[in-house]
């Protein structure tokens, strides 16, 4: 397969075995992949453990857009970013973990900013409810976990 691959293309293989053919310039927006390519320890197929096909597709979509849009207006990219990161909490968690693990700075930045916007202006109670959701019930009923809370405290 590698022989038929166009020049400057890489194959990324997700944790669940799906393969994505990606231009090298897009793939190296991940600093972890960039290091592998530079050290020449990567064959054409690069395994991306811990990231499943669903999330990897999203990460690639983000990087492609950022690679293409260098000439585009910054405001367009900003709109794309804010729409891209507008996802459910679980997808956000997986994306942040992937962006952190693969070291994709621009994506991690956009995601952290988005989570910050979700927290902005919220009370302690709301933050707990929002981010713990159904887990809250479990935690409230467990004496052990109760210890992780501390009371509202302004020193």
């Amino acid at each position: 397969m590698s022989s038929s691959l166009e020049k400057n293309m890489l194959i990324l293989r997700s944790s669940d075995g799906e393969e994505f053919i990606v231009p090298e310039v897009v793939a190296v927006m991940s600093k972890a992949i960039k290091n592998m390519v530079e050290d020449e320890c990567a064959s054409n197929t690069i395994p991306v453990p811990n990231v499943d096909a669903n999330i990897l597709a999203m990460v690639i979509e983000f990087c492609k857009k950022h690679d293409e849009s260098e000439a585009e207006a910054a405001s367009d990219l900003k709109t794309f970013d804010s729409e891209f990161v507008n996802r459910g909490q679980e997808a956000l968690y997986d994306l942040i973990t992937a962006a952190n693990f693969r070291d994709v700075k621009e994506l991690l930045d956009a995601l952290c900013q988005n989570v910050a916007e979700m927290i902005k202006g919220k009370s302690v109670h709301h933050i707990r409810i929002q981010f713990l959701g159904y887990q809250l019930f479990e935690i409230l009923t467990s004496n052990f976990i109760w210890n992780i809370w501390c009371d509202r405290d302004f020193d």
Binding site: C112, A116, I119, G121, V124, I127, I148, R152
Partner: peptide, 16 residues
Amino acid sequence: RLPIKTIIHCRCVCRT
């Protein structure tokens, strides 16, 4: 990335 007031609230969300 949060405003001061929200950070003060966040200090009280959990020990971590």
